[in-house]
Design a protein around this nucleic acid. Structure first.
Lengths: 404, 404
DNA sequence: ACATTAGATTTAGATACTAAATGTAATGGC
DNA sequence: GCCATTACATTTAGTATCTAAATCTAATGT
């Protein structure tokens, strides 16, 4: 339990307080900021002037002109300059890359998706692909690279505080994270490299299904399960960033492997067809190999196909056990299932939730499907980048005000 | 992911920085404090004078007189006044109560142990017993109740931020925590009520086997398992303080129940004797019922008794699985097994560690036995109370300096 | 005696804020 | 159209916390 030395802080401490407030407000008057920060008007106005001069805030026409009726003298109004800079969120997955450029209000300016060679283990190739996506998105957004305040990269690997991934898993982690931290730092961008499931959790926490909860788990599911924990309002990363790695789920009875929902649905269907045990009445009987995927199973289940439902039931049992163990060990209020499959798993979650109430002691955790589909990680990356920019704003330089 | 409003802080901010530094130093000069806090001499000396006047620090004879050779003018020396106040740590277990009174240097001034009626569900009785222990310890230490800076109470139940335990477990939790928070607050003492396993983790983190590790788990074992997590240097408590509850371990293959090491050893021995399957060569054969306990099994195993070793092996297998799941899901570097049984489980841990390396991917977490025996919880309570006092020192009033 | 060392003390700011008095742009009643 | 009222802005003086730099002091070694 290391305790870092407290250090004397200097500088207009509360400028950051004003900026934090501005970050989450659409537009605000000096009085708004006063009640939010408990500072006096003199201080607030002085700080706002400072922040306007630095380019972080813009002064708007006064509050009455804006239609906010009031009797007395009209109040001055400020907003965060959404165009003071941009942040970049990059989902650097094994198969796909997604880069999002966002302004400071969280508005997405551009998105570029591309596919990666999933088997390439050449660092240079993966870095070049990442560069391509990021540059493409910046160009599409019409901003130059010097406007980037910071970038957050999501990788399917644990990461430590420096953004490095441990050796292990037959070097898969090192291949998935071939040094993004140094790579983007070289461009002068503050860079954070973070595990994909952790970013998914951040996404759910601020724009998704976990908004408001202080303790929740996000299960990122596709080919494999990965979890992101937010407990007591903070991300739990682990000694090497490996918290949420699901390899040891194999020890949980009835789980057996860390395979994700997508993989399980596909594999079980595939095996059933190969062994010829699919009843001919089922829509899944005799499906061509390239259509034997999770989505097909879920669609068939939705249509009432009883064989598809039997697969769903098996997955539900396994998922419920995973959720029970996680919720039990971590005491979280909610579990969000995210990832590309999340859009079509309504019936699965219903069954899982039923099983979960049997397995756990009340109150059972809420179980919901993410609404962010296959963008969770990149959205989480943007959200994390915005937080990072907010927390380090006063150390960053911003595009000069476009006043004149 | 709630974000509380930042508030303007005022007052001699860095007095607390000096005090924090003093807390962990035996005696220090102004120069020591300067390099620790990055403040100038003027500031440090002004703040030290302030803290001396308030009773937190005492000025000693100068550094040369103390034998710290130096050439120039002798430096002034200060220490934290260990007798500025006391803190109380109370382990309010189901069967036993332990109250420790400690001075601010962490020196134990008095300890009182007593047994509680484990089946009493009358709040008044448990509170009276707690009062008895605490008052006894204070009297033994020779301090009056107004000198108590704060008290930390450890209970075998989850606790929330207010020190309340949830309904559940057939009200066992409410019985174990019959409102200690309000009870001791009424005496004017800042009171923290915390789960016993969490306090054990705090104890291991600062005086025990996890010193230096930033992520570790403490498994408090006796009749039942309970875990305390410290991940990324902070305690993980969970939505209702229930992180580390092991009820759902029953879902892990080969574990089956959250019974602790003590209970397992006793029960398995008991069953074996009842079923008459203990080989007559074993020292455990025909043991009278009141001697059929965990310690006996461990002693026999130590002496090489092969039947005892077979029980140890079964426990090791189970313990290894628990450790594997916890370490895997949380990515901790170390697991400390604590509790009364911890003193005699050397051979068990050896076997568990071997099994653990088979079950986990490298690096396997270190596995150690606590050296704090059945005092972990009360020692953790004291440690937590000292931290609490340090962090809230400037809001507390202290016994006036004994100078004149 | 005197240079050297290491720290103490003093003095004069700088910074980041508060508090309170005064000034100002609007409203609405008469 | 004047005036009280409202709700803010602006100005001024002042405070607390800390720094920087000059000066003072108590010791050592030669």
């Amino acid at each position: 339990m290391a305790q870092e030395q407290p250090v004397s802080t200097r500088g207009p401490l509360n400028a950051s307080a004003i900026l934090r407030f501005a970050w989450d407000s659409p537009a605000f008057t000096a009085s708004d900021a006063m009640s939010a920060t408990h500072l006096t008007r003199s201080t607030v106005i002085a700080l706002c002037d400072l922040l306007v001069a630095e380019g972080w805030l813009r002064e708007l026409e006064n509050a009455r002109a804006a239609g906010e009726y009031s009797k007395g003298r009209p109040a001055r109004r400020y907003v965060l300059r959404a165009d003071a800079g941009v942040v970049v969120g990059l989902d650097a997955g094994q198969h796909h890359l997604t880069a999002i450029v966002s302004d400071l209000s969280g508005r997405e300016l551009a998105r570029v998706q591309s596919s990666a060679n999933p088997d390439s283990d050449i660092a240079r190739e993966r870095l070049a692909a990442a560069d391509g996506s990021v540059n493409g998105a910046l160009q599409k957004a019409g901003v130059t690279s010097d406007r980037v305040l910071c970038i957050v990269v999501g990788v399917p690997a644990p990461t430590d505080a420096d953004g490095h991934s441990p050796e292990g898993q037959n070097s898969f982690w090192r291949i998935m994270n071939p040094g993004y931290a140094e790579h983007f730092s070289k461009r002068g961008w503050p860079t954070v490299v973070e595990n994909d499931a952790n970013l998914a959790a951040i996404a759910e926490g601020c724009r998704g299904r976990a908004a408001g909860a202080s303790s929740f788990v996000t299960l990122l599911s596709g080919e494999r399960f990965g979890a992101g924990y937010v407990v007591d309002g903070r991300l739990v990363r682990g000694a090497q960033g490996g918290a949420g790695e699901m390899r040891l789920l194999s020890l949980v009875e009835g789980v057996g492997s860390p395979d994700g929902i997508g993989a399980l649905a596909r594999d079980w269907l595939h095996k059933a067809i190969a062994q010829n045990v699919v009843p001919p009445s089922s829509a899944l009987a005799g499906l061509p190999e390239h259509e034997q995927d999770a989505r097909t199973v879920f669609r068939a289940a939705d249509a009432g196909d009883s064989f598809a439902l039997s697969i769903i039931d098996r997955i539900a049992e396994r998922l419920a056990r995973i959720c029970a163990v996680l919720a039990g060990l971590l005491d979280v209020e909610r579990i969000v299932v995210a990832g590309a499959v999340a859009t079509s798993i309504g019936p699965l979650l219903e069954r899982t939730a039923r099983r979960l109430t049997e397995l756990t002691h009340p109150p059972a955790p809420e179980l919901t499907a993410s609404t962010l589909s296959d963008n969770v990680v990149s959205i989480g990356a943007v959200a994390h980048a915005l937080e990072y920019a907010r927390d380090h704003a006063l150390t960053m330089t911003v595009a000069p005000p476009t006043s004149a």
